[in-house]
Each structure stands twice: as C-alpha cells, then as structure tokens.
Design a protein around this nucleic acid. Structure first.
Lengths: 219, 219
DNA sequence: CGGGCCGTTGACTCTTGTCAATCGCGGTGG
DNA sequence: CCACCGCGATTGACAAGAGTCAACGGCCCG
C-alpha cells in the first residue's frame, strides 16, 4: 500500500540490511491483518518491532474497558521495546500492516557489536519519549478542537501529504485523543463547515484545505 | 517570581563528585533554590541530570501559558536526556533540590567504555517512557477523582511512606494531572470527608488513611 | 497590624460525555 | 438486481463533570 512512498527520509532509517554480510539477519517480517494483535499487555517481550507498511496502534486498557491509544506507529517507526520482560501495552494492526520483528536479546548482544543499530534503537526510544511528552500536553491541556487540529497536522506531516488517508476509525482517533467518537465527529464536521477541511463521502480520508487555519487552532 | 529566600538565589556548580570512587568523575553537583530553573525549553541540551535530593518538575508551555508538567523527578531519577540538541521542556526545582549534572557528550563517549552507566541511562529513559505511557492513560481517560487517587498512591509508593509530604503546590499538581487547582482542592476535600485521606492544617502533607479505598478509586 | 500567597469554597457556565435515533455505505443472499 | 442487514459515522437532546470567576480564610512574614 504505502510501497511507493520514498521511505520517509525524515526518519532516516536504513532499510533492513540484507547484504551487509557482517550483520546477521536480525529480523523476521510479519504481515498482520486488520485488527490482528501483535502482542498483548502482559505478554513476554521477546521481540520489538519496526513498521514496514501500514499502521500499528499501541494501547492500554483500564479494568472497565476505557482505552488509551498511546501512539500510532507508521512505516519506519520502532516500538515495543521494554525495560522489563513484559509488554506494558498491547499492539494491533490498525489496518493491514507489515512489521519486522527483532529478537530482544539481539539488542543487548548487538549493542556492543553493532553500534549503529543500537544507536538507531536508542534514538527510536528517545523519539517515542518526545512524542509521548507532546501527547501529554495535548491530552492534559488542549481542547477537543485543538486536539483534532494537532492530530490532523501531525498525521499530514508524517504521511507527507495534505490529503490524509486515515488508516484508523473514529473510535481509534477518539481513544488516542482522549475524547469520544461523538466529539471527534462533531469537531470534524465543524472544521468542514468552516472550510478548513474536506470530508469526502467515504469518511476515511480528509483533505486539509486550510492548513494555516488549522495551525492557528493548534495553539 | 523567585521567592525572596535569603539563601543565595543562584548557586553555581559545585566541585565534581568526590565520593563513589568506582564511578568515574562524570558529573558536577548543583543545588537549586525553590522554583529555580535548571534549564528552559529550547536551551542547548549540554547536560542531563540525576536528582540527589528534593524534587524537579519538567514541563512544557503552550503559547497562551497553559502548562503541562510531564513528570516530577525524585531522588535517583534521571531526566533531561534529549535526542536533538535542545531541551524540549523546561526543568525547575519544586522545592530546594540537589542534582548531578552529566555532560551529554560523556554519554556517547562513555557508552562504549562504561557499559554499566550507559545501561543505567538507557534504563532511565525506558522508565521515563513507561511513566509517560501510564500518564497518558491518566490524562486521557481518568476522571478527576481517579487522577488524584492515582497520583497519591504513586507518590506514596515512590516516597515509601503513607504519610505523603507533598513537595509541590496545588498548581503543580493540577498542571500535572490536567485539571484546575479548584478541582484538585475540591477532590482532596471530598476524599477527606470520606475518611480516605487526612489533610493536616498546613496543607503540604497528606495522610493516606485508607489506601484500599484509594486503590478502588484508582481503576 | 497589614499584605501577599496559597488554598478552599460557592455560584454559575460551558465543554464534553451520554444516550438514542438515523444515515449511508458495503456486503450478502434471495 | 435488489432488499436487507450490519457497522461505522453523524446528529440531536440532554446531563454532568470540570472550568471559570469571585469571595474568603488562614498562615507566614515583615
């Protein structure tokens, strides 16, 4: 699906090294169907992952079912690294997706051998942390309108296109932004009425008609 | 606003740590007065830090002044590591505090030499990430009551005492939990009326009388 | 004694959540 | 081919949790 994208250069990840004889084959690719679970909260964290195509959501549940999606991981993103030996959140495919799985122990053993790879992983962690910190600001201090604006701009930037093809449902968006699907829907409609975005008939894509206005809302 | 403490408002860097001969001299200790800034959003990230005593808050501001405190760092915690060369949030002393500053370049250069230290730093980052993820759940999906319950239990655990001596103001708590000071105040009063906590006259400490009840509220 | 700061409380507002009805598309089977 | 069904999204009416604004209280400190 995302095949044609010139591998978001911003992220600067190398393609999985195939030739490079000095580096052993570290990862195995895995294809996931829509909503298929990659790992669950509490599973042994034997692997961590890199997204090749599609999107993965990582989330946590409260006992009564409330859900918080901590992040959507797009091609190039690394996720699922843990300090302990259990995954502390679950990961599912938002839509059909492909990932590369890396044995976790490789990380420790290769850390010294393959400095570049270790560095890449550490960088991925730092990027996750930065995203998490920005997202806390969003969750704790922004209004529904600001949340949606931030979300759309972020997605557009990461996908490198003003015509955002949403891989996720309204429910996913709501659970990521800490609001309800009704509020997501109402806010999008409101933005459409103000001619800031366009919502085509099949609701899974959004055209950002007026990015400047969105940025003004974004705080 | 620096409260007019008679103590020297600005204290420079002290001598490098002398004790702990097994650890190379990596850092310089620094003492901070209440509300003194350790670094600001956008400052060059030349150092990262470890808390020795007291508490440090790291926060971000929105253009209109809304603030989100991403974390309170207590003795032993490491914070301020960045992927880029700028700090992405600011750090201030909640109360009088002591930290050790580590040159950031030490990290890269010592990573190979001093595996143990590098490991400690990576672990600190992972712990930060875990905390951030838990906190996103709190910010996005918990009610004010649940937020306060979670906060009190977490603090009690980290400080290792059911009699929590709050180092921070109501404003700090509010900005950490994504609510207002009025809501913090009302919620604490409510918990007191239900005999779940006790609020002594000087409002900077809280006795957790009924932890079980708190845990039930915590979700 | 007076002022400032922090926290508490009350009255009211408003954003967002809840509940419920409806729409519209896509798939399926008659 | 078309009617039906189911699911996700939208919309409306209403409720409620939290925010806002304002007054007040207590404490520390000059």
């Amino acid at each position: 699906m995302q095949t044609a994208l010139p591998a978001p250069a911003i992220r600067g990840y190398a393609e999985p090294v195939r030739r490079a004889p000095e580096v052993k084959v570290l990862g195995a690719t895995r294809v996931l169907a829509k909503d298929e679970e990659l790992f669950g909260e509490g599973d042994r964290a034997a692997f961590f992952y890199k997204v090749v195509s599609g999107a993965i959501r990582t989330s946590k549940l409260l006992s009564d079912g409330r859900r918080q999606i901590s992040a959507f991981h797009l091609p190039g993103d690394i996720f699922g690294i843990e300090a302990g030996d259990e995954h502390r959140f679950s990961a599912e495919a938002v839509d059909e997706a492909t990932v590369i799985a890396y044995r976790r122990c490789s990380l420790e053993s290769f850390a010294s051998q393959d400095g570049a790879f270790a560095c890449q992983v550490v960088n991925a962690m730092m990027r996750s942390l930065e995203r998490a910190q920005d997202h806390m600001m969003l969750l704790g201090r922004k209004s529904a309108l600001e949340k949606i604006a931030t979300f759309l701009l972020d997605l557009a930037e990461r996908l490198g296109d003003d015509h955002v093809d949403l891989p996720m449902s309204r429910t996913d968006i709501a659970d990521h932004l800490g609001i309800t699907i009704e509020t997501v829907s109402r806010t999008l409609t409101q933005l459409e009425r103000q001619n800031i975005i366009e919502l085509p008939a099949h609701r899974r894509s959004i055209q950002l008609t007026n990015k400047a206005a969105l940025r003004r809302l974004d705080s």
